[in-house]
């Protein structure tokens, strides 16, 4: 019961993280819902005294990776070979969705996954490098180099006016 209450308290932040990972808000809420369900199911694995938000970020991030992989597999299966370069962004629905997006959404989506999740945790969620590296399960040096590359790409994508 207090587990649900604690989840409810961090839910706004979880939604924000989901939004920064996902293509649009609707996808973000789908991801968020899946993460909540997974978290509730795995509640016995959470150790009281540790940070619930980090634990949920990790669950959400893993789901997001799985889902992207599945989507990519589907794209590989159904798209012709030449379309391979656009895998992950191909499809009419994507094009349509893209038109509704802001520069920020578009630029974030153009980032490789490992850069996007690092940027989302540190710049959007405000985690420290140490916390973000723990969520992602990578060494600090890996995290910081992803942050450097991701930021360089974002500045380029969003123009100097960023």
């Amino acid at each position: 019961m207090s587990f649900e209450r604690d989840l409810l308290a961090i839910l706004p932040r979880l939604r924000r993280f989901a939004a920064s990972l996902s293509r649009d808000r609707a996808d973000g809420d789908d991801l968020c819902q899946a993460a909540l369900e997974r978290g509730l199911k795995a509640r016995d694995q959470w150790q009281p005294g540790t940070r619930l938000d980090s634990w949920m970020y990790r669950i959400m991030r893993n789901l997001w990776i799985d889902e992207a992989r599945a989507r990519q597999r589907a794209a590989h299966t159904f798209a012709p070979e030449e379309a391979g370069a656009h895998v992950g962004h191909a499809g009419d629905r994507d094009v349509e969705a893209h038109m509704m997006l802001s520069d920020v959404d578009r630029a974030m989506q153009a980032l490789p996954q490992e850069q996007r999740e690092a940027i989302a945790l540190v710049l959007v969620e405000g985690l420290s490098y140490k916390e973000a590296a723990a969520v992602l399960g990578v060494p600090m040096g890996t995290l910081t180099s992803r942050l450097v590359r991701g930021r360089g790409a974002l500045l380029e994508l969003m123009g100097e006016a960023a």
């Binding site: 409810l8 839910l11 509730l40 959404d105 710049l123 959007v124």
Partner: peptide
């Protein structure tokens, strides 16, 4: 870099401020 961070944070901040959709609340 400062304005990039501010812009990203500012862009997603409203998501955390709006009311949580009923369907997510319902899960809990």
């Amino acid at each position: 870099h400062r304005s990039l961070r501010a812009r990203l944070a500012g862009h997603y901040a409203p998501v955390a401020q709006e009311p949580v959709p009923d369907r997510l609340r319902a899960v809990l």
